[in-house]
Computed example of a mutant assay.
Amino acid sequence: MTVTIYDVAREAGVSMATVSRVVNNNPNVKPQTRKKVYEAIERLGYRPNAVARGLASKKTTTVGVVIPDISNAIFAEVARGIEDIANMYHYNIILCNADKRKEKEIRVVNTLLEKQVDGLLFMGGTVTDEHLQAFKTANVPIVLCATTDEHGVMPSVDIDHEAAAYDAVSALIAQGHRSIGMISGTLQDPANGYARFQGYKRALEAAGIAYDESLVRVGNYRYESGVEAMKFFLERDKHPTAVFSATDEMAIGAVHCIQDFGLKVPDDISVISVDNTRMASMVRPQLSSVAQPMYDIGAVSMRLLTKLMKKEHVEHARVTLPHELITRQSVAVLD
């Protein structure tokens, strides 16, 4: 049979109110009494009923996290940052994979809200009007993590994706490259796709290099699309001297395609990307990449959410974290 708080109280020889105070870490309990209650809890194997406590306090100490692709290492790093801060503030996490599909994202958001989570962290692609409508119906705080909404109405934590792409392409230009291809993410994605594409174009414009639409291929963030895009570039009459990829995974696909064609990185073609996942330093040659502080994005998002859940003062609800260009071995100086 299920052990109840009444059983613990009887075993310890105290009132149920005293057991409740001990379980809830109330300081107004004598150390000797607290010890007796803990010993009774251990002997009986009592576990407090989180659902019942949530009903009484109207708090579940649970946070829902919507993640776009649980198999993607970059989101795993964000989730680690979320989890560490959640543990620090005694919150539990419900992690849901949404496959970057709008219908599933909205369904998962509604499911988590039905589970009476105290707050929600949303990682996804485009934040549409349908997303915003679902968020508006929530009576708990919601923070966008590693993404932002177009109108800037939601609390969020992210980097400046356009600036990150601008810095990556500018690094290629500084090494003498003028013919620079781009392997882009979908342009419907405001951050990893469109913003990074805009950064690429702005860097070319700043250097007086004409934008060439034929030097841009749209991928789906995966390795295979990087291979396909690079194959397209290499089969041209004259391939670009450098390629900027919107993600490390597509960049590694591009590197392997170049090598499959019997060419060398960076001797024949330079490659640079954004994200700086662990894969960037595992591939050979090691990949130059703009680092997103993914762990920090997760940690800061969770800390912002805790403040909102506790109704603490928040000075900046939209946080932009710094990025950093990590130079490795995949970019060469063009003679």
Rank of each mutant, 00 (worst) to 15 (best):
D7L: 00
R10T: 12
G13V: 04
T18P: 07
R21P: 04
R21F: 06
N24T: 08
N26H: 15
P27R: 12
P31W: 06
A40S: 15
E42V: 00
L44V: 07
A50L: 12
G54T: 06
L55A: 06
K58Q: 15
T62Y: 02
V63P: 00
V65F: 14
P68Y: 02
A79H: 05
I82L: 14
D84E: 14
I85N: 01
A86V: 03
N92M: 12
I93P: 06
K100V: 06
G119W: 08
F122T: 07
F122N: 06
G125I: 07
H131F: 10
K136R: 15
A138Y: 01
I159H: 08
I159M: 06
Y166V: 00
A168G: 02
S170Y: 03
R178T: 08
R178N: 04
S179L: 01
G181V: 11
L187R: 11
P190F: 04
A191R: 06
G193Q: 02
G199A: 09
G199Y: 05
R202G: 02
A206M: 10
A207Q: 05
I209F: 00
R217L: 10
R222M: 13
Y223D: 09
V243C: 02
F244S: 02
V255G: 07
D260R: 12
F261Y: 15
K264V: 01
V265K: 14
D267S: 13
V271G: 13
R284E: 10
A291L: 07
Y295F: 13
Y295S: 03
K310I: 01
K311P: 01
E312W: 11
E312Q: 14
R318A: 13
Q329P: 00
Q329M: 07
